[in-house]
Write a protein that binds this DNA or RNA. Structure first.
Lengths: 356, 356
DNA sequence: AGCTATTATGACATCGATGTCATGACATCG
DNA sequence: CGATGTCATGACATCGATGTCATAATAGCT
């Protein structure tokens, strides 16, 4: 494997000059540069990152950890792992900045975190991102304290830079859209109470009503349950029936997420209620495998996973570059667009005020 | 940051001895070892991987590339990215072996592969894994030739070690199970013709029939179409109707994958046909978000993604360890279990020969 | 006792890049 | 014109570990 000494010899310059060509950190004569580049090409030179790191302390590596940092209740095990998109978003941003991503997944074993961090430190990562599976509050393990860390899809109350989805805004946009489409009586089957997203989405729901000057009918809000994975949807039929029984009848139902919406589709069908002609349904997450495949296709707010990842990466890069935390607030939120699909009907009874 | 010299001084030994304790490559007296370990702990020593790599050439890094190596037709863009599980499986196996995973996703731009490989080489990865999004044949880019590479979820015909899902066995098990449950007339809505999995699953379907001594009725097999993403499912209703019109009527339908099965659920419902009382339906992939949420829950063969990843990692580790390719054949396949769920009915007309 | 293994340890060079400092050649300026 | 600044380049030391080789002490064997 060729080294910069070989390149230097071939180009008739000193190793240091080769280094300068590689790093562009000092002016090099045009002709010299060309000679060096030619030599590198013909020798098939590959720079050794190890040697570079050793001297300069810039490893060009960043670490990403997924899995449970705070103990996640077993019960909340998600069926899919959409956080790949977060990783993807982060990876792309890092790649553009010439950084390479080291990843490790600690699964459910929080006790493996220190060991993984240790490994990352041995590789001299310049910073770390921690990615949670769903929007939640965590406690940063002590090993990470004081290092450049950005949280993605989670946050803590120690002021660690974090990037989370804007659940409030997302639900607000969704409900506002329903109202614009003529809906006035909108049911809400909320997520389980221990989920951070539940409260935020509920806030968005209320805010959209308030903005439109509509009083929220509390009877239309079903409070969600503590999750017990075995009986995850046991209470859903009753909750749905309670909402359907309200008078005036609701014309739309917001579901806590797409998975719940998929269940609601089945329940409505059993009850002989057609979507969207008799009732409109919306989900949340915009999990394409569900929203695009359901009949009718499901309206949903997109969880901006790629955006979370790339924004977290950007913040980390700035942190690493030496600046203080670049974000205005420690916790930033990123919102996703609403994908309007067939499951929502525009009500005729309504004057076509703002029809998108 | 403490170095091995600091540790040596604190423990009253030479740096080389500290190195021996770290690597366990030569005997060290019990007491000396304890002293060194104590010194490391009190100094909060973190070994520099860069220095180690430089001297020993073992970086402890392996690279993983996802995305398009061979040009994938745009049309085949998948909605989800289940290959996160492949990455997970690989990462876990590597972590156990003390290796850290570098990842990069090249998306659809095959031309970025050389650049990414270059980056990996700069980091002196000891080996590489390439992960495809779905079972397919690829052509390894020249930069990778001659290096330790293992393919996951894809293969080439240059003899590169590869690990792929055993679609033949998976469909075989599925259809065999249907036959054991009394089904004799089994329709098959196949995947698009350009998919590798299509042919293999069809083979499995035929083999299960043959083993049971049942002649395959070709009219029950719908051939699948070239995929045009815009009209992906245009021909599905007609294909389904053709199968349903066969006499004697089919009692079960195999779908190319779970997504297609989800569509078939909707079509059958429109036609007033109940699952599973009037017809059984099975999918493939066992995409939990679909199979567990559908009503009735969908029987499907699991794509062994984690297994693919960890098996690929194992093979790579052995390759790197210096041995020749450890697998018997260059292309290994891993099969996944069938998850029997509510969508399949056991037919009464059948003697309970082998009821699992 | 004498010889060979094995254990336990250290001295020293080295991996390949980059940081620091020095130097010469010009260009610019007051 | 001398002073100052910028461009362009090189000499040399150095980052922190480990490979090689040497050495001493003990254990095992004939």
């Amino acid at each position: 494997m060729a080294t910069i000494y070989d390149v230097a010899k071939a180009a008739g310059v000193s190793p240091k000059t080769v280094s300068r060509v590689l790093n562009g950190d000092a002016p090099v004569n045009e002709k010299t540069r060309a000679a060096v580049n030619a030599a590198m090409a013909s020798l098939n030179y590959v720079r050794s990152n190890a040697a570079r790191t050793m001297r300069s302390r810039r490893s060009g590596l960043v670490g990403l950890i997924t899995g449970a940092i705070s103990a996640t209740p077993e019960a909340l095990e998600p069926a899919g792992l959409p956080d790949i998109l977060i990783v993807q978003g982060a990876q792309r941003t890092f790649a553009e900045a010439g950084m390479t991503l080291l990843i490790t997944d600690v699964g459910r074993s929080a006790e493996r975190v220190p060991e993984m961090v240790q490994t990352f430190l041995e590789h001299q990562v310049e910073g770390l991102i921690y990615v949670a599976e769903y929007h939640q509050k965590i406690t940063l393990p002590p090993v990470l304290a004081g290092r450049p860390v950005v949280l993605a899809n989670c946050f803590d109350d120690a002021g660690t830079p974090a990037v989370v989805p804007d659940d409030r805004q997302g639900e607000f946009d969704l409900v506002k859209g329903l109202i614009e489409r003529g809906h006035r009586r909108i049911g809400f089957l909320t997520l389980p109470v221990e989920q951070v997203a539940r409260g935020l989405r509920l806030e968005g729901y209320r805010a959209a009503h308030q903005e439109a000057g509509i009083d929220v009918d509390e009877a239309l809000i079903e409070p969600g349950a503590l999750i017990d994975i075995q009986h995850e949807y046991d209470r859903l039929p009753a909750a749905l029936d309670r909402i359907l029984a309200q008078r005036p009848a609701p014309t739309a139902i917001c579901c806590g997420n797409d998975k719940m919406a998929m269940r609601v589709y089945a329940l409505l069908r059993e009850r002989g209620i057609d979507i969207p002609s008799q009732i409109s349904v919306v989900g949340y997450d915009d999990y394409l495998m569900i929203t695009q495949q359901l009949h009718p296709t499901l309206t949903s707010t997109r969880l901006p996973y790629r955006g979370l990842g790339s924004r977290a990466a950007e913040r980390l890069l700035q942190l690493v570059a030496g600046g203080k935390d670049p974000g205005e607030a420690p916790i930033e939120s990123v919102s996703g667009p609403v994908a309007w699909r067939e499951s929502v009907q525009v009500l005729e009874t309504q004057s076509p005020a703002t029809t998108p």
